[in-house]
Amino acid sequence: MQKFNKVKSIPAYLPIVNIDTDMLIPKQFLKTIKRTGLGKNLFHEMRYDEKGIEIDQFILNKAPYNKSKILIAGKNFGCGSSREHAPWALLDFGITCVISSSYADIFYNNCFKNGILPIVIDEEQIKQISEYSLRKEEIEVDLVNEKIKFGNNEIGFEIDPFKKKCLLEGLDDIALSLEKTDKILSFEKKLKDSKPWIFND
């Protein structure tokens, strides 16, 4: 997984609540067997008309937002389907940080598996930093210090320490869990005695 430390960019602001994963990446793009190449299909139905031509007004089609690495959006971002294609599409587009006042659970977890930092701040703070999107000025997200820096201001955010460590170091959590194989093995042995029916044998 790619590491996340800092990101500096003019943020794109999408003031829509309940952006679901069907909006992020519609089903016709879930037929892939790869993780890459989905960036062009991110927000497909808002981004392209029925003929497949880019809709000029959509924020991610406009410079400088077509190069944004930070997306600011309304609450309950990423609700709906568990499709990891949603964070894959964000990442492939170049977005490595999302800022919202809340997220759906599965999407939130999926971000961390892909080197994307989802930040939670309150709605007043969202309004404050969204000004920088409108003014086309850069903001900086600093994970080590848990801060969003903009102009002469900064906002702190909180993040689970373990998730932070995994992002900063780009850790492979399967490898981490496999280090506990002896614990898994002894759990399985105990389980075979206490609930033999679990193993179907």
């Binding site: 993780r35 568990s82 499709r83 990891e84 964070p87 599965i106 977890n109 999926n110 598996k113 892909n114 959590d173 399967i174 869990s177």
Partner: peptide
Amino acid sequence: FGIGTSEVEH
């Protein structure tokens, strides 16, 4: 509960 593909792999 539902999980993402990275978790499926896990």
